[in-house]
């Protein structure tokens, strides 16, 4: 098995719901608390497994906003595991999930240096490295109803931009999505071979823009808009 995520950059609206639900689930998950520093201070920050960043792609009038959520890619060539001197970082043989054994980590930061995706963050309170577990404590939990055995971020996504599945199975939902929508890897030139894939924004016609000059009278524009909106 090769478990991972497919993230749709076309439908992601950048609402950060996945960030919040990830933190909510994992702060009491297998990797222990996700410490917050100065939660009520001037500069609140803390450990997070999942972060969403928003970008403006291209220039006016062709510009559009693209949101890119990022968590651990569970790379096939996981250099973070190779550089770990203590053996605390490991990649599971059975499903390819990369985890950190909190009892072995000495907090040297080298694995976070080796990760190009910023997936690993040091928890200053425990002095250990923490990272996305692909909700390993959810996806195998037989106490949960089968539909809920998915990572917290996938379950919560209101625009259904996140998909979880097995990339080894060519007919799984994620493999089909990657095949049909030209799913891509982030920074393929580094050769980490990340399992998580991103679906690029669909090509869409640009929103009509007005290049200055005299506008039509307001009543005409209102009528045009009304004709477009009201379905007869």
């Amino acid at each position: 098995m090769k478990l991972g995520l497919v993230i749709d950059m076309d439908t992601c609206v950048g609402c950060h719901a996945c960030v919040v639900s990830c933190k909510q689930w994992n702060t009491s998950g297998t990797l222990g608390a996700l410490t917050d520093y100065e939660p009520y201070g001037k500069e609140p920050n803390g450990v997070a497994f999942n972060r969403v960043r928003s970008y403006e792609v291209d220039e006016y009038p062709n510009n559009k906003t693209v949101n890119m959520p990022m968590s651990c890619m569970h790379c096939e060539t996981a250099e973070c595991v190779t550089v770990c001197p203590t053996g605390a970082s490991y990649k599971r043989e059975e499903d390819g999930i990369v985890l950190v054994d909190q009892d072995k980590c000495m907090g040297c930061n080298l694995c976070s240096w080796a990760c190009p995706y910023g997936a690993r963050e040091l928890d200053q309170a425990s002095g250990t490295m923490k990272k996305c577990t692909l909700c390993v404590d959810r996806i195998y939990d037989t106490e949960l109803p089968e539909a809920e055995r998915q990572p917290a971020c996938v379950l919560t996504c209101p625009s259904k931009a996140r998909h979880f599945g097995d990339f080894d199975d060519p007919d799984s939902n994620v493999s089909v999505l990657v095949r049909e929508r030209n799913g891509l890897q982030s920074m393929p030139e580094l050769g980490y071979n990340p399992v998580n894939h991103y679906l690029p924004p669909r090509p869409k016609p640009n929103a009509p823009t007005h290049n200055g000059g005299q506008l039509e009278p307001l009543t005409d524009r209102f009528k045009k808009w009304l004709n477009k909106v009201v379905v007869r």
């Binding site: 001197p85 203590t86 053996g87 605390a88 009892d103 072995k104 980590c105 000495m106 907090g107 040297c108 930061n109 040091l122 200053q124 425990s126 002095g127 250990t128």
Partner: peptide, 9 residues
């Protein structure tokens, strides 16, 4: 090291 007690590993 943030957690030197594991340095021996």
């Amino acid at each position: 090291l943030a957690n030197p007690k594991n340095a021996w590993r």
